[in-house]
Design a protein around this nucleic acid. Sequence first.
DNA 1: CGAGAACTGGAATCGTGTTCTAGTCTGTCG
DNA 2: CGACAGACTAGAACACGATTCCAGTTCTCG
Lengths: 217, 217
Amino acid sequence: MARSSATAESRNDGEVPDPELLPAHLRRRRDRIVEAALDLLEDGAEYDRIQIRDVAQRAGVALGTLYRYFTSKEHLYAAVLLEWAKTFAFASERDDARAESDEARVRRRLHRAVRAFERRPQFLRAEILLESSNDDNARRLFARFADRHQDAMTAALVDTEPEEAAAIVETTSMVMAAKLRSWALGRTTIADVHATVDRTVDLVFSPRARFRHDAAS
Amino acid sequence: MARSSATAESRNDGEVPDPELLPAHLRRRRDRIVEAALDLLEDGAEYDRIQIRDVAQRAGVALGTLYRYFTSKEHLYAAVLLEWAKTFAFASERDDARAESDEARVRRRLHRAVRAFERRPQFLRAEILLESSNDDNARRLFARFADRHQDAMTAALVDTEPEEAAAIVETTSMVMAAKLRSWALGRTTIADVHATVDRTVDLVFSPRARFRHDAAS
DNA sequence: CGAGAACTGGAATCGTGTTCTAGTCTGTCG
DNA sequence: CGACAGACTAGAACACGATTCCAGTTCTCG
């Protein structure tokens, strides 16, 4: 972490090319790097334990090459998460096409998310670390990752007014994420995580006095 | 981070004395170290930027001495957080002694917590990092810190049955923490954090169909 | 084909937490 | 009083993984 942990000023030299604008073969090379990194994490290695050298080797590129595409390990792994979100979102879209209530759809997706992390605790760890990265590029990508999740959830709420939908997504996602964290910390069981998700969904969807506060504090 | 980030096996050599059992003058020395570390953080320095060397110097002890009391930077800062929680909890106890509803008390305390972090974003950062520390001693202390918060919140719920109180504390705290994180990330404003706290408290206290799910998924 | 961009292998650098060394100080016990 | 233990000190030394550099080498494209 020589640089990344030592530096608080967000990297101002971000000299990496926008992947969108890359000629196909370079783009492919970049993708190979991301894939290699993803594989390593998927294989169960702890984020901390994974060395950039290994990623480079696995991707079959030199260290210097990797650093042409990513400013830091964190930037690389933010890209990994984003990539992962892609396949994940895809999986979400199947199987809830049938006629269900918004509530049921949200519930299903939340449980799916929990399950996804259940078998990949390292991803949770990575997510947590990246969430508060100093690297600007990492932050940017991470934000996209978060948005992607949010969009996916929001898309489940067909019959709800947008404003309320946003609040619902926010609350449930936060509780889920927080609870997953305690699970990752060994402070609770995965069954409890699921139970909490259910409780929260109940709570948020049950008929009740609606939001009243507009002003803070 | 030579050791801490490289090591996943939780430190098994935790050769530090239990502060409770320390003779007074040694205890005082230990406290001085914690205070120095706290000061540094309080002065606005980013956790990452703070070097153990500086803490030692500020406390007026040699590096080796610091390491006689703490196994790692994370252990040290877990102690710092715990110490901070002490003063914080104390501040909480005044001013809500009067007759209020449980709801009002919870609300007040949550807002206070938000304000506490508002002027100390570095603490939030530290909390996040320590939450997933590898150091056993750090974990232990951190757990105490978390418990302390939870107890403080639970104590605000006088007229609520314990089980429900626990659920309320858990949910509201999680939402607050998560929202604070997004604030720290620049994804929202502090006013919005307060607003969310209010909404969540409303939600959790409003009369409604009570929890129904017992089994998970 | 030739220029320049991109890549390779690997050495070198860096930052920082952590450990080690050699001695110094303090207080206690016989 | 003298010796021993325990805790301390200044600071050097070490570990180690991210990041940067370098000197060629190999593509790619006009």
